[in-house]
Design a protein around this nucleic acid. Sequence first.
DNA 1: CTGAAAGCGCTTACAG
DNA 2: CTGAAAGCGCTTACAG
Lengths: 363, 363
Amino acid sequence: MRAPTTDRLRTVIHAPAKRITLKDIAREAGVATGTVSMVLNDSPRVADATRSHVQHVIRDLGYVYDRGAGQLRSKHSHLVGVAVCNLVNPCMAEVTASLQQAMQDLGHLLILGNCAESVPRQQRFLEKLREYKVEGLLLTPAAGTPKTHVARLRDWRVPVVQVLRYVPGAPTDFVGGDHRLGAAMATRHLLALGHQRIAFVGLDPLSIAAREGFAGFLTALAEAGQTPDADLVLPGPATREAGYLAMAPLHALARPPTALVCVDPLIAFGALRGLVQLGIEPGRDCSVIALDDVAEAALCHPPLTAMAFDLDCIGRAASRLLSERIVAPDHAVEHLVLQPRLVVRSSCGKPRAVRRLNTARPR
Amino acid sequence: MRAPTTDRLRTVIHAPAKRITLKDIAREAGVATGTVSMVLNDSPRVADATRSHVQHVIRDLGYVYDRGAGQLRSKHSHLVGVAVCNLVNPCMAEVTASLQQAMQDLGHLLILGNCAESVPRQQRFLEKLREYKVEGLLLTPAAGTPKTHVARLRDWRVPVVQVLRYVPGAPTDFVGGDHRLGAAMATRHLLALGHQRIAFVGLDPLSIAAREGFAGFLTALAEAGQTPDADLVLPGPATREAGYLAMAPLHALARPPTALVCVDPLIAFGALRGLVQLGIEPGRDCSVIALDDVAEAALCHPPLTAMAFDLDCIGRAASRLLSERIVAPDHAVEHLVLQPRLVVRSSCGKPRAVRRLNTARPR
DNA sequence: CTGAAAGCGCTTACAG
DNA sequence: CTGAAAGCGCTTACAG
C-alpha cells in the first residue's frame, strides 16, 4: 500500500469527465486490480486492513461498478427476467411488486416484460432477454403459451420458475395457488349454505386456473351428489365486462342459479354490478364467491366473499426457488402449491328458497 | 467471403457447450469481426450481399448477441430504468405496462424498481441501477422525494423523465395529467349541479397531484364566490381505507357536505362504501367525483363519475420524450401536461336541498 | 494474502 | 466497402 499522493487531486482536476475505473482504484490504493475486484465481490480472501483501505478509496473517488464489464468474464449478470402476462391485473401487479422486492433483496435487478396476454409479444420479449444473459426467469405465461416455448427456455439453459400460472407439461419449477382446492372449498361453502343451483362463471379453456377451478367445482358438486347443469357453466375471459354481460342470460333461464362461483374477482365485480342492474340483490337474492382475492373485494358492494392466496408469500417463494435453481440447475423440479383461505364477507347467504322455508314468508 | 467449409459441422459436434461468438460468425462467414458487428448494428456501410450472407450464418449457427460485451465499448446498453412509486396502484400499473410496451418498441428493455412509496428504497434502487449504465430513467417519484435526489441523477448524467408525478423544483422533463384543471373541472361540475358544500378528500401534503388538485378546487370555488370550509378539507393518503374512514366524521358535522371531490379513485371507492355503511346513498344523498379514472370506476356501485386521463397516451409520450432526451441531453426541459376528460357516470346528482325544492317533498 | 497478465465478446478508429 | 488490431472494464487463473 502506497501512501496517498497528489494523484487523486490531479485526477479530479484534469479529467473530471473520464469514468473512474477499477484500475484507478487499484493505482490510488496501491494494490493490484485483482485485489480491488475481490473487495468489490466481498471475497473473504483479502486482509481486513486492505479491504477497508480499498473501500475508502472507492468511496472517496466515487467509483461506480460496471456490471456490464464484470459479467463479461464472470457469468453473473445479477439480472433476472420477469415476463408477466398482464400487469394491469391487480393480482399480477401485486405479485410483480413482491417479486421485485424479494429479488432486489437477493441482489438481483429485474428486467420487466408485460405481454398483455399476447404469446408473440411474450416470445419477442424472451428473445430480447437472451441478449442480456439474465441468470433466471420468472414467468407468468400468457394464456395459450405452447409448451414448446417453455422447452426452448430449457434449451437456452436459463433457469425458469413459473408463477401463478403454468404451461401444462412444461417441466419447470412452479409456485402458485391451489385453484382446484380453492374452487372445491368455495363450492362446499355455497353447498353448506343450502345452494342447489350453483353456476360456474369464467371457464376460459386457455386458463389453467380456470380449468383447475372447474375440476374442484365438479368434485365438490359430486361430493354433494349433484351433477352440473350445462346451462350453468359459462365460458369467457377474466374481465369485468364478461362478468357483467353474463348475468342477463343467466338470470333469463327458466331456473336461474342461486349462487355463482366466479373464477376471477374481476368477473365477480362485473357480476355484482350486472345483478344490481337486473334488480337482483347480490348476497341476498344471489350469492357470489370469487376464486381469488384482491383489495377491491373488501370494499365493493357488497363486500365480496373470496378465496384468498397470500400473493406476497407466492412472490417471495418464487424468488427463493429461482435463486436456488440458479445455483443448482439440475435439482429435481419443485412445485409449490399454496392453499387458499376462505374470506367470508357479505356476498354469500342462504338461497331465497331456504330463507322462505325458514321464515315462512310468501313469495 | 470464403465458401462454407466443414468448420461449422466441427464446431457443432466438438464444442456444443461453448458460446458462439461474433468471432465464430466472422470466421464462418469469411469476413472480419468488424463487418459482423456492422451487420448486427444495421450499419448502412456494408454491402447487401455481405449483409445477407452474414445474417444467414448468424441464423444457422444460432448466434446470440451479448449486449453486456457490446455496451462495454459502445455506451449503448439499450437498457432503461423505471422507478415506480407504487406498482399496486392501478394507475401506476397501467402506465408501467404502457411504458414497457413503448420502450420495447423503441428497442429498449426495462429494469423495474418498485419502491412502495419508500424514499430510501427508491434511492437504493437508483444506486443499483447506476451499475448497469441505463441510458435513461423513467421516474414516478415516491411521495416526499427531496429534490436533491433528483438533482443527483443529473450529476450522474442519466437522462430522466418524470411520469405522472414530479418533484417540485427538479429540472427534468415531465409527462402527466393536469390535476389542477381536472379538479377545477370536477368542482365546476358539482357547482353546476347546485352543490354549495363540497368537501375535498385526500389532501396529502406530500402529493403534488393532491396539492395541485386542491388549488384547482379552490379556484373553482372562488369563481362561484364560495370560500372553502376548513371542516370540509380532509387530509390523508390515497387509500380505500382513508376514504372509508373519512365518511363517519364528515357526516357527523352539523352541516355535512353534499358532495365530495376525491383526489384518488381509491379514496372514492372507500368513500362510496363508507357512505353506504352510514345509510347515505352515494349519488343521491351525497355526490362523489374522483380526480382520476380507473377500470373499476365503471363497474363499482354506483358507477363513479371521474376525471379521466389517457394513461396509455401518457406512457407513450413519456417514452418518446425519454428517447429524445437520450439523443439530445441538453435540449430545453419539456413539460407535457395532458388535459383530463370528465366521465359522467352515476355518482353525482343534484343536492338533496335542491331536489327538495324542485319536488316540494317534505323532509 | 497479493501481483502481473491474459482474456471475456464486443466496437471502433485506422488503414487499405 | 472491408480487415487487422487495440481497447472497453472487469475477473480469473497462475505465480509468488
